[in-house]
Design a protein around this nucleic acid. Structure first.
Length: 410
DNA sequence: CCTTTACCTAAGCA
DNA sequence: ATGCTTAGGTAAA
């Protein structure tokens, strides 16, 4: 069943890289549905349509891949024009949000400022709630490649087939319906597909949503977009509480859903990464009698409140940028541009900040040495004292023995 | 309240 | 090669 689609023409989304960067935004673990189909190009399914996006130097282009008219596999009616699809993308990327303005505000925080030049244009996607719920049930104790493969398996096996794109073998499917995931025997099927203990969560969550949906329908007469989507209208706390009732959805996953599909930009999913960011970069003090500091519910709340305090109503967006900067796969975003020798000797004394002079081809700057940067993703040196500095230009430095690696913002 | 344990799997590493 | 660890957690004790 090869259902080749007809590609449209590239059209401008009219958005600069400072407002949206696809490589990070699409691959930082928000959505697991985008397929890389070229240099700086990604393709996925949105609202039943196959759409490709391409990052250009000063803009992003998009094009639709329409099913041929009368195609027996066609699942949606063809659009009058690609232009009619523009609002879908504007909604998905929440382009009404002034990201550059937010970045400027967030740079008040020095740790954020340090990362910002390497990680510009990272947005929170406004995802489909159903898709969001089930992909993040898959995310527990898991890694991005495997989550991606599991989500893909879900779509290929239970989602409606839409088509392929010329030149690429990948079959594009819509996300499975909740009804399909609630089906009998789904748990054992999913286990065979390698979902492990998440299989039961998926089936139970789907069944729970189905119950709510039918209750809603009998009450209201007609569905107003479904129970899950309606959670968008609840305040954050209530919305979160409802989500936690789903099997396999705990505090962290509930916050992911709140942030990524429930219009709650202040939600802070605290996972192991964020827990470490809080301790390492913000030296958060936790009053606890316990000898071993672990991520307790109390800490969870404290960290969320701290982020909201520091970054405001869109704290979840800021959190996501710091999170992305912490991902190993983006460590190269501070990639080495050139090496220069350090003129003065560096000594690090705990958290004491010192200054040294560095000579590069065209840069002489002061270097600040924070104390604990061991796990900083921008850092390539293994154990010695790693160095950051706020230079006269957008340059970033790491100390090796006697050499500095100068990194340039991408 | 906080900590510990079980729950699946696959890739990475010693 | 075989065994161990780890990876966006959740639920139950």
């Amino acid at each position: 069943m090869f259902n080749l689609t007809t590609p449209g023409k590239w059209e401008s989304l009219r958005v600069t890289p400072a407002d949206l960067r696809l490589d990070t935004t699409l691959n930082c673990g928000q959505s697991f549905r985008w397929v890389k189909t070229g240099e700086e190009e990604w393709t996925s399914v949105l609202k039943g349509k196959i759409v490709s996006l391409r990052q250009e130097e000063s803009d992003i282009l998009f094009k639709l891949h329409e099913q041929t008219a009368g195609d027996e596999f066609a699942t949606t009616a063809p659009l009058e024009s690609q232009e009619a699809f523009r609002p879908v993308l504007e909604d998905y990327f929440q382009l009404n949000v002034d990201l550059k303005g937010l970045y400027e505000k967030w740079k008040m925080d020095l740790n954020f400022k340090k990362k910002a030049s390497f990680f510009a244009g990272i947005r929170i996607l406004r995802q489909d709630p159903t898709e969001n719920v089930f992909t993040f049930i898959c995310s527990s104790c898991n890694n991005i490649p495997r989550i991606t493969s599991m989500v893909n398996n879900l779509c290929i096996n239970y989602g409606p087939y839409i088509g392929t794109v010329p030149g690429h073998p990948h079959p594009y499917h819509g996300f499975p319906s909740v009804a399909r995931l609630a089906g009998d025997g789904m748990e054992s099927e999913l286990r065979k597909l390698g979902f492990g203990y998440r299989a039961k969560y998926i089936m139970k969550a789907a069944q729970y949503i189905m119950e709510k949906e039918t209750a809603l329908k009998t009450d209201a007469g007609d569905s107003n977009g479904g129970w899950l989507e309606n959670l968008r209208h609840l305040p954050y706390e209530e919305c979160r509480a409802e989500l936690i009732k789903l099997a396999g959805v705990g505090p962290k996953v509930a916050d992911c859903i709140c942030l990524m599909s429930m219009d709650k930009p202040g939600a802070i999913p605290v996972d192991t990464h964020v827990w470490q960011i809080a301790q390492r970069d913000y030296k958060m003090k936790f009053q606890t009698r316990a000898k071993t500091k672990s991520l307790t519910p109390k800490h969870y709340v404290a960290i969320g409140d701290f982020f909201r305090d520091t970054f405001g109503p869109f704290a979840g967006w800021a959190h996501s940028i710091l999170f992305t900067a912490d991902l190993n796969q983006f460590a190269q975003h501070g990639r080495i541009e050139k090496k220069v020798a350090i003129l003065d000797e560096i000594r690090t004394e705990g958290e004491e900040k010192i200054s040294i002079k560095v000579e590069a081809a065209q840069v002489i700057g002061n270097v600040e040495v924070p104390g604990d940067m061991k796990r900083d993703p921008d850092v390539t040196a293994s154990k010695k004292s790693e160095v950051h500095f706020e230079p006269p230009s957008h340059v970033f430095a790491v100390k090796t023995e006697t050499m500095m690696n100068i990194h340039r913002a991408v």
